[in-house]
Amino acid sequence: MAACSAPTLLPSAVDVWRHAIEGIPADKPPCRYLTPAKWAALREAAIDFCDRYGAEAHRLGWTASQLFGVHPQHGTLRVDGCGAMMINGRKATGVDAAGVQLSNQTAHRDKPGQETGPPIWEFAAKAKAP
């Protein structure tokens, strides 16, 4: 009789997103020209999004880059490469297949010609590399 091994529990994509964002200290902005206060607001809004809307966003097919991406060379300085949660530091008020609602505006997922960059945690890791 073969031994039965216990199933391995893998973290959900949302858990990975949240953990990666939490891994960047609130007082250490990962992007040049990003103030500590602005980074703290972006980070807090991103963590809040993961907790409140992350599972629904993942179910709707949102990717880490579409939500937390930054421009590959310029980080948050170039918002044309930023994901929905890396633009203004506002907490989300909803999510659907087309966009993330941020109080009185919507960050749309599919803007013609826009390409989001890597998730901010990958950008931060690359910036730290020698």
Rank of each mutant, 00 (worst) to 15 (best):
G99K: 12
A124Q: 11
S12G: 07
A20C: 14
G23W: 04
T35M: 01
T116G: 01
A92N: 06
A37T: 03
Q73F: 10
C4H: 11
L10A: 13
W121Y: 04
P29R: 00
R43C: 02
R43Q: 11
K111V: 15
A97L: 08
C50S: 13
E22L: 14
I21V: 15
P112S: 09
P72V: 09
A13C: 08
F68V: 01
V70E: 03
P130S: 14
P7W: 01
Q66G: 15
M85C: 15
V100Q: 06
G61F: 10
P36C: 00
R78F: 09
G117T: 05
E56N: 10
F49W: 05
P7H: 08
C82D: 00
D27E: 13
T63F: 01
Y53P: 03
H19E: 15
L77N: 09
Q66L: 06
A26D: 08
A6S: 14
G89C: 02
A84N: 08
I21R: 07
R59Y: 10
P30W: 00
T35E: 06
L67W: 05
A92L: 08
F123K: 12
P119M: 06
A40L: 02
P72C: 08
V16F: 05
P30T: 05
F49V: 12
C4E: 14
P11G: 05
M1L: 11
D80W: 07
P36A: 02
P29K: 03
M86R: 04
A64G: 14
G23N: 07
H108D: 07
L34G: 00
F123L: 11
T93A: 13
D27S: 10
P118I: 01
G94W: 10
L9H: 09
H19S: 15
G99L: 07
P72Y: 11
L60P: 06
C82F: 00
A84I: 08
W62A: 03
T35I: 01
E122Q: 15
T106K: 11
W39A: 00
G113V: 06
S65I: 01
T8N: 06
C31R: 03
M85K: 09
R52Q: 12
R109D: 05
I87L: 15
A57V: 05
P130Y: 03
D96K: 05
H108C: 09
A92P: 10
Q73T: 13
H58I: 02
L42C: 08
M1D: 13
G99V: 03
A41R: 14
G75T: 02
P30N: 05
R109Y: 04
Y33M: 11
G61S: 07
R18G: 10
F68I: 04
P7G: 09
D27G: 06
A55N: 12
I24Q: 03
Q105H: 06
D80T: 07
A20G: 00
K91V: 06
K28S: 10
T116F: 08
R52A: 09
G61Q: 07
Q101R: 15
Q105V: 12
C31V: 02
G117F: 02
R43F: 00
I120P: 04
P25Q: 01
G83A: 04
